[in-house]
Write a protein that binds this DNA or RNA. Structure first.
Length: 150
DNA sequence: GCCAACGTTGGC
DNA sequence: GCCAACGTTGGC
């Protein structure tokens, strides 16, 4: 899952403990949350438009997809006139912080890792804010995070 | 700030 | 259903 730290950072998640991932307004990203994310699934938390850009930690799904009520809140930044309580349109999951990496794994460093060659995050033009990660990629990322701490 | 790579919208 | 115009994302 991607987030701009100016908007919501992993430090914010640490402060809050858990949060609802509202504001996703892309169908593909919504579908991944709705159809693929299950209770207990682990999430890589990515900082975009940041210094440094990269994976900053791990979170966990603590509630499966349910309607994103901010979609029909006129005052909300992510308001969508097509959404309503009867037709929620957009969904969100709740996540909880698991750990923050001692050193974030920078995007340019990740690009140099052969095992991550096929990772969606590293694909040119990849813009999905919620995207799948292969188990092997997840393991590789965790190993890199471990190595960096030493 | 630039711009490539998207996704969405709406006229036809 | 096509596609041009437009808006957004996000690395650089």
């Amino acid at each position: 899952m991607k987030s701009e730290p100016d908007v919501y950072s992993i430090a914010d998640l640490q402060r809050d403990g858990h949060t609802c991932w509202d504001g996703v307004r892309n169908y593909q990203a919504r579908n991944f949350m709705r159809d693929e994310m299950r209770l207990g699934d682990e999430i890589l938390f990515y900082h975009s438009n940041a210094q440094p850009m990269g994976i900053s930690g791990v979170a966990k799904v603590v509630r499966e997809a349910y309607p994103d009520h901010t979609a029909w809140d006129k005052k909300h930044h992510h308001y969508d006139p097509k959404a309503s309580p009867d037709n929620p349109l957009w969904q969100m999951v709740d996540i909880r912080l698991e750990r923050i990496f001692a050193q974030p794994l920078a995007l340019d460093a990740l690009r140099k890792v052969p095992e991550l060659k096929g990772m969606e995050l590293l694909r040119k033009g990849s813009r999905l804010s919620v995207q799948p990660v292969r188990a092997s990629e997840f393991d590789t990322v965790l190993k890199l995070a471990c190595k960096k701490t030493k």
